[in-house]
Structures are given as C-alpha cells and as structure tokens.
Amino acid sequence: MENMTNNDVMLRLTQIHKRFGDLEILKGINLELKKGEVMAVIGPSGSGKSTLLRCINRLEEIDSGKIEIKGRVLAQNNGENVAEYVSEKESRNILSCTGMVFQQFNLFPHMTVMQNLLEAPVQVQKRKKEEVIPEAEALLKKVGLLEKKDWYPSRLSGGQQQRVAIARALCMKPDIMLFDEPTSALDPELTGEVLKTMRELADEHMTMMVVTHEMNFAREAASHVVFVEGGVIVEEGPARQVIDNPQEERTQAFLKNML
C-alpha cells in the first residue's frame, strides 16, 4: 500500500466552477496531482482544457471551488460559495513553484534566447546573473540549443522556440510544469523534438500537467489521463487504461476520432 502524506499532493482542485458571462465552462472539476506524476488532459476542442490549466495559475479566476498548490490555498469559497483569492503578493509566492508553456511559445522577441532565460531569475528572484548563466546554459544544452543562445527568437523554428520556452520556464526551478497544447502550433515534422524534451522531463520525474492532442505521448509519457468534455471530467485513470481501454462511451467516441 502506498502511504501518501499530504506533502506528496502538488496540486488539488476541488469543485472548480468557472464561467465566461452566462456560459459555464468548468462545471465542478475535482483533480489531484501528485509529486512526479505526469497528467495528460485530453478532450475535444472547446471542452475547457485550456481554461482548466489557466485557472490553476490564475491567468483566469475561478468563480467557485478551491485551489491548493503544495498544500497552500490559492483560492477557496467564502460563506456564499464564491471563491476568494489570497492577495496578489501571496498568490505570486504560491505560484512561484509553477511554470507554464504556451501553444504560441510567447518568447520575448526583443531578447536573445539567453536573455529570455535570465529575465525572470534575475528580475523576479533577484539572483545574480553570473550565477544563473551556467544553469541557463545547462538547460539550453539539455534542450539542444546551446549554440543558439545569442539568437533572437524570430530566427528560430517553431520547435526550437518551444524548446527555449520550456528551458525558460525550467530556469525558475518550478516544481509543477503546465503545458497547454505545446505542439499544436508546430508543423508536424517539428513536434517530435518538443515531445522528446517533454519525455525527458517526465523521465526526471517532473510533476507535469499537459493538455495535448498527441495520443501517443499521452499513452507513453503520462502516468494519468484525464478526459474532459463539456466542462466535466468524464473519465480518468492510468494512461494506458484510459487510452487503450476507455470505459465511457464519450471517451471511446473521442478516441476513435483521434486515430
């Protein structure tokens, strides 16, 4: 038997509700991410996957429910069942252990690859540049782009840009990495290099939550798969079980479409 202490839970979502205007996008999501787990979030487009991810790091704010990150409460309901957030400062502090990779990379175009990596450690963590540079170089080497460290992002391919974006997030030494369809904006021949980087990260037991349409990646690199449709979790379980042997009809229909 596994004996899970609270410390092993990196992220816990309880009864998350989120609406845009009159439209309820997340309808009561419960979810737990443990240390070292790789969770793949799959589901049709428009089902609320990005919104779910963006609620975790407060790019969007939930309407009701509870968000806990490494045991610290980011938001929880008040007496009227309306979620209330901690202060901006506290929130930044709690979220400092999370990193995010976007579909559109979002590198800073006016900075070189190296400057992109150094920016947050130096400006936010107030670390010495000389001290961060070796770490940044090690990360760039890991994603295979050390020789591009003085290039501006516009000169890199999409796959290279995304690998820089991953390195930039890792340079803040996060404990949880969130990926929102990291390969969806890439030409098919470039997805492999990004997926490889993510697999390596998974092998190093980075805790990850990955929204993806790459079913092979979900099956092989993820420990858990969550299938979301219409703002609810329809099915979840061990990756291979959900993908190879889905129990719910809606999951079966979705996966049939993907292959």
């Binding site: 999370t98 936010v124 963590q125």
Partner: peptide, 30 residues
Amino acid sequence: ISKGQYEAAKTLGMTHKQTMRRIIIPQMIR
C-alpha cells in the same frame, strides 16, 4: 502587443510594473 506576452511574464512571476518596464515598453518602442 499580444496578450501572450503579459501572460508569459505573469507565469514567470513578474509584477505588472516589471512586465511594463521590461517586456511591454521595449517592444512598444519599436
């Protein structure tokens, strides 16, 4: 300047002021 720039800065822990000064204004100048 795209929303993604603000979001990337935010997920890296930058404050609004840092985001303006380091990310948005330099790009705006161009």
